[in-house]
């Protein structure tokens, strides 16, 4: 066999072609008794139905967490989760936090230094001393 093939798997790039939102589930936890859940309870009654309608791709669960601060938890496709404590927050602030969790990729936050990240190799290629103008010393 003069020629054989190397097995590989095609890599997906989210957003090239289809876009899959990385946040798959948002959990809203509230407490009926504690004052820190006041904004959360108002959010669940007033704002959450509209938020769920605007984001059908996210599964939303609401559950009590008695005698604890209210929490919004996002579950992501990469298996990680992010939790934000929303104690004493108003409805608008909680909506902001929910949007933040929705738009997150689920990855750990890390500093991005390079303006472009690409799977394609550079068009110009790596600089080579043997091509182009030769320097004469």
């Amino acid at each position: 066999m003069p020629l054989s093939a190397v097995k590989a798997v095609a890599k997906g790039q989210n957003g090239v072609g289809a876009f899959i939102l990385q946040c798959k589930r948002l959990d809203f936890h509230y407490c009926d008794w504690a004052g820190s859940s006041k904004g959360m309870n108002a959010f669940i009654h007033k704002r959450l139905p509209q938020f769920a309608r605007e984001n059908p791709q996210i599964e939303i669960t609401v559950s009590p967490r008695p005698h604890k601060h209210p929490v919004v938890t996002g579950h992501y496709i990469n298996g990680r989760e992010k939790a934000v404590c929303v104690r004493n927050m108003t409805t608008e602030l909680i909506l902001e936090k929910a949007n933040l969790l929705k738009e997150a990729s689920g990855e750990k936050l890390r500093r991005v230094n390079k303006p472009v990240t690409s799977v394609n190799e550079s068009v110009r290629g790596i600089w080579s001393p043997y091509h182009g103008a030769q320097y004469k010393i």
Binding site: M1, L3, S4, V6, A8, A10, G17, N120
Partner: peptide, 24 residues
């Protein structure tokens, strides 16, 4: 199919393994 499969990247040039390239 186009949005989920053809949008994926696969470098075909890295899948070749020649045994006798000069003869070929």
């Amino acid at each position: 199919f186009a949005s989920h499969w053809l949008s994926r990247t696969l470098d075909l040039s890295k899948m070749f393994e020649f045994r006798t390239p000069t003869v070929d």
